[in-house]
Simulated assay, not measured.
Amino acid sequence: MPVPPPSCGCCHGTSCIPSGAGTALSLIWTFVLPVLQSGMPRQMQILFRPDVQEILNSFTALLGIRMGFFSAAGEELRVGENKPWCRYCTLLRTRLDQDGRCRETDRARQQEARDRAALLHYECHGGLVEAIKPLFLHDGHLLGYVMIGQLRMTDTPPAEYLFQWKQQHNNGELREAFLEAPYFEPSRLKHILGLFSSLVDYILQQHMIRVETAGNLEQIIAHMEQHCDIRLSLPEAARLVGKSPSRIAHLFREQYGAGFKDVQAEIILDKADWYMRHDPRMSIKEIAGAVGFRDPLYFSRFYRRKRGIAPSLARRREGDQQIV
């Protein structure tokens, strides 16, 4: 599936908000990309309201189908329930060396959905069903994609992969993993796709995803990202950009749909998630300290309250997804 967030220079032409060395670059709140206007590139921010994550979580939890938001370049920015790719896909990628084919398929299907400017569903080369819906700005520029997958409509994976698996491993693990993917009859798939499309339209109609030019808030966000272990107060943030605290508080509510402290909390948690993904040797206690928590138990409660999952379990899920 699409490449991970571009902390290693693989952003295919997009650039993230500067966040200092070793900082998570793709946050729930902001993602910067070049948008052409009057022939000149300008820096824009994709702004997510918390409702977007709630919709992704609810769809994923109800149906067992992974729902995620991807940038126009294919970087995964948000995913429901932090759900990793299914075990069957992981086996294809890692044990049958199909990772390149998976990525090529994703890029081709994303381009097809973009060209059609409409929802596209298809069966991938691995025999699972996925769907993509592109999102466009009012001026016609591509904002990104919302994707769902993987689900099945059959009980048997493609014969070519069963044959390869038998030749290389000679056991039933691949078929078992395939059967773990959620199964739906064609009549239900039609309704799932309808619900998916309606949710994406609702997100756009309710302005849950907005695009803004970078401004004073970008400077504050960058400061928060670069100094996650030190809490920036609202008065300090206001002094940083020469505004009043009340004005900054209003701008956060207006642009992000959330308060100053809520945005700061998401930045802290995204930094913690980055450590989980990129430094598996760090303990939860060390991660807590790195993001400004002296008490690791308080950090765990804070993380669980905001993410709905314990950091130890989140770390295991991150580890599973990194295999892909």
Rank of each mutant, 00 (worst) to 15 (best):
E160T: 06
E212C: 06
W85C: 14
R87L: 09
I46S: 06
M282L: 13
A159N: 10
D106Y: 15
A290V: 11
V324G: 13
A288V: 04
L313E: 10
Q53W: 09
P134W: 01
P5C: 05
E112C: 14
A265D: 04
M276E: 12
P6H: 07
E123R: 14
S233K: 02
Q168W: 04
E212V: 09
P5W: 07
R305V: 09
L47Y: 03
T94S: 07
I192R: 00
R116H: 11
I267K: 00
Y303S: 11
T105I: 14
R188F: 10
I55K: 04
A61C: 08
G215D: 06
H169Q: 09
F70C: 06
D262I: 13
G22H: 11
V291W: 14
H12D: 15
Q111P: 12
P311Q: 12
M40Y: 15
M282T: 09
R301P: 05
K261C: 12
E236V: 00
K166Q: 13
R253F: 12
C89H: 08
G80A: 02
A159M: 11
Q37A: 07
L62P: 13
P134F: 02
G64K: 01
Y202H: 14
E218A: 15
I28V: 05
S233C: 00
L199G: 09
V52G: 01
Y122M: 08
M282W: 04
L204E: 10
I323E: 10
D51T: 11
R305D: 14
G140V: 02
M67F: 10
R316K: 12
R301M: 06
A108F: 12
L135Y: 05
C228V: 11
A159S: 04
I221W: 10
P157A: 00
F136D: 00
F178P: 01
L91A: 02
T105N: 15
G127N: 09
R103N: 07
C124S: 13
R301E: 09
F302S: 06
G319D: 05
I220P: 01
L119V: 08
P41F: 08
